[in-house]
Design a protein around this nucleic acid. Structure first.
Ligand code: NAD
Ligand code: NAD
Lengths: 210, 210
DNA sequence: AAGCGTTTGTGAAAAACTTCACATGAAGGC
DNA sequence: GCCTTCATGTGAAGTTTTTCACAAACGCTT
């Protein structure tokens, strides 16, 4: 482990922390002030021990015999995840999928905001529900630099994905949420999370036939 | 390992098999007939040893000194994954996201077909691009039973997700691809794959700030 | 203030997964 | 037909992640 603050938290733990955070949010909505590792773990679909191990990576927040304070734990987790402040995100590729994502009003309350979208053909009619500007590709680099954008959602056709990704990275983007069904080649310090629906379906299909 | 056919392939391996399959498809498009574990692994973003271990779980297909036959390997993998035959899938919740998924023409060539969609308000205008029927919720159970549907894509609002999931499961669905940002409670033998974009973004955000 | 029931935090054990190292097998040239 | 080259397949070692088991800590009751 590293010496201070960051004991190298496993990737999977980080993923689960996000889940815990959402479960805690729902508890808070229901005005529940305290929760045991058992209850929270059940809500998150994991084992209580795992939840406690996950939390132990970055502190000890519980009260023995009682459980965790919902508000305090929420705060600590979102602090650790770095989502306490709103992150600006851009989207590239305003097609069927991109449009659905743009019009989704659920990201803001999770700490993200899609502040602009880019497309090769930005002449697209302004959808009534969409409030973000849709800009041309030639404006992308300067926009990214000016706004210090670090993350992008990539929903262009597969054939264009690598080229667009390269431009994003050149412009300073460090994290890409990639919807196109190809493996992007990127430098080590750039992070790509892939969302591939065909793979998810294939996966389901395999495990239900067993 | 079990005695025949199914040596208990790790979950992560299954996931990677899907990725290999897609890389192989691209090689085939480029008329490449043979590939080494090194080349394929690079394309898939994994280590060559891992690729070979993954394949070893269900057979030995390579030729030493030469590599793998692209066609043969594709066939074996899709056989193992059970995607050699087209799987019928339904979608529930034809909103912004559901509509984008319905109009996507990329699933068929991956072995899946969304054969129908269901919504609480099916009176929705038939989009020109959508060829699937959009039916009411009262028709769902009988449709699932008649067509032997085993998988469903769930893109209803969070508040409705659990209720709809219950109905899907009662009707015989064994696998759910869940887009709503909640953890579904399901019986053991039902499999849920979650796609949670907020979590993916949060994850990116964490790892790029380190 | 002591006892009781509950639940955390955590080393240690187990399981799962990845990487290493190299023997083995196949193809093609000489 | 043998030898060289290349790349697979795999036992063993290494690493990471999960689970177990239980002592320690806290609140509440008496
Ligand atoms: N729609 C879905 O449900 C779905 C499902 C799974 C995966 N995907 C993947 O998501 C991606 C987008 O899918 P879609 O259905 O929205 O496609 P789409 O064709 O509807 O939209 C693609 C958009 O990207 C734009 N574009 C094309 N080339 C570009 C470039 N070089 N630079 C910038 N913009 C460019 C196009 O103008 C278009 O607006 C694809 O890679 C697809 O495989 C989509
Ligand atoms: N749109 C996005 O980009 C996006 C991104 C991330 C997550 N999600 C999640 O995906 C889900 C759908 O999102 P959306 O933006 O498409 O929402 P939406 O409101 O546009 O669509 C929801 C659809 O579900 C239908 N519906 C509502 N209750 C129903 C019920 N009980 N039975 C059947 N159908 C019902 C509605 O009629 C509507 O057509 C939500 O859970 C959302 O949180 C969406």
């Amino acid at each position: 482990m590293k010496k201070s603050g960051r004991p190298v938290i496993p990737r999977k733990t980080i993923y689960r922390l996000s889940i815990y955070l959402r479960c805690l949010a729902r508890l808070r909505e229901n005005s529940i002030g305290t929760v045991s590792s058992e209850a929270l773990a059940k809500a998150a679909g994991v084992k209580p021990t795992q939840l406690r191990k996950d939390l132990a990576y970055f502190g000890t927040f519980g009260t023995r015999g009682l459980g965790y304070d919902v508000n305090e734990l929420s705060l600590k987790i979102s602090d650790e995840l770095g989502t306490s402040s709103l992150q600006p995100v851009i989207l590239v590729g305003v097609g069927n999928l991109g449009l659905a994502l743009l019009s989704y009003r659920g990201f803001e309350k999770e700490g993200f905001e899609i502040i602009a979208a880019f497309d090769a053909e930005p002449r697209r009619k302004r959808d009534k529900e969409i409030k973000q500007p849709i800009l041309g590709m030639d404006e992308m680099t300067s926009f990214i630099r000016e706004h210090g954008v670090k993350m992008a959602i990539l929903s262009v056709p597969a054939a264009a994905a690598q080229v667009v990704a390269n431009r994003l990275i050149e412009s300073g983007v460090m994290g890409i949420l990639n919807f196109s069904p190809i493996v992007l080649a990127v430098p080590e310090d750039v992070m790509v999370n892939n969302v591939n629906l065909a793979i998810e379906l294939e996966n389901l299909s395999y495990f239900i036939q067993s």
